[in-house]
């Protein structure tokens, strides 16, 4: 019943990719409860900095390879109600657990014991979803189904324009967050010192 992919290349490259991914996530400290909850409390911006940098850097290479060498994209269907509703449930769970699926597995690797219970919960959540899938497929997935589409296709703009806007927006956000860190220190200190 449990088949393995006979293509050994897939298994080896998957393992290598995971090793690098796990190493990077752990070094970036996003495998920590404090980092993830801190992001949602808006006191630690490691998660946004990591994700937005990955997205901008990744997009440049992937779109270049797609246009130059026909490297295929792997888009997921825009089933808008399901994407939004799933995101809401995911976000609530992530704030309570303090990990997402990948960082939860990484957290187990760096010694988090409560992450083990999180992963057990994830397995339960996956099994629950499998039970309700026929109902979800019939009622939720068809609502707002745009198919496998991108912001470039929807707006009619070149993907490069969107990547440029995204990079500029990410850069601006990083600058604002960095400045606010300094500014709040400078502002807080004189007010506290007279006491």
């Amino acid at each position: 019943m449990l088949k393995a992919d006979p293509n050994l290349w897939n298994l080896i490259t998957g393992l290598l990719t995971g090793l690098v991914f796990g190493f990077l996530l752990q070094r970036g400290a996003v495998t920590r409860f404090r980092t993830i909850v801190g992001q949602f409390l808006w006191t630690d911006h490691t998660v946004l900095r990591t994700m937005l940098t990955a997205v901008v850097v990744g997009s440049i290479g992937v779109y270049a390879m797609h246009q130059l060498w026909d490297v295929p994209l792997h888009l997921k269907s825009a089933t808008l109600l399901a994407n939004a509703l799933g995101g809401l449930i995911f976000g609530i769970g992530m704030a309570v657990l303090g990990y997402c699926p990948g960082t939860g597995v990484g957290a187990m690797g760096e010694g988090s014991r409560h992450a083990i219970f999180g992963v057990l919960g994830m397995l339960t959540g996956a099994a629950l979803y499998a039970e309700v899938y026929p109902w979800v497929k019939a009622t939720i997935l068809p609502v707002g189904d745009l198919g496998k589409t991108t912001l470039a296709v929807q707006t009619g703009l070149s993907p490069w324009i969107i990547i440029l806007v995204l990079a500029a927006a990410a850069g601006a956000l990083f600058a604002i967050l960095a400045c606010r860190g300094h500014c709040s220190h400078h502002r807080a200190e004189p007010r506290l010192s007279p006491r």
Partner: peptide, 23 residues
């Protein structure tokens, strides 16, 4: 943590991806 995990994976499957696949 367990309950959070249930929501995380249920939400990820409903949305068809998580912070890696979608994010």
């Amino acid at each position: 943590a367990f309950l959070g995990g249930v929501l995380v994976l249920f939400g990820a499957r409903l949305a068809d991806g998580c912070t890696s696949g979608h994010g």
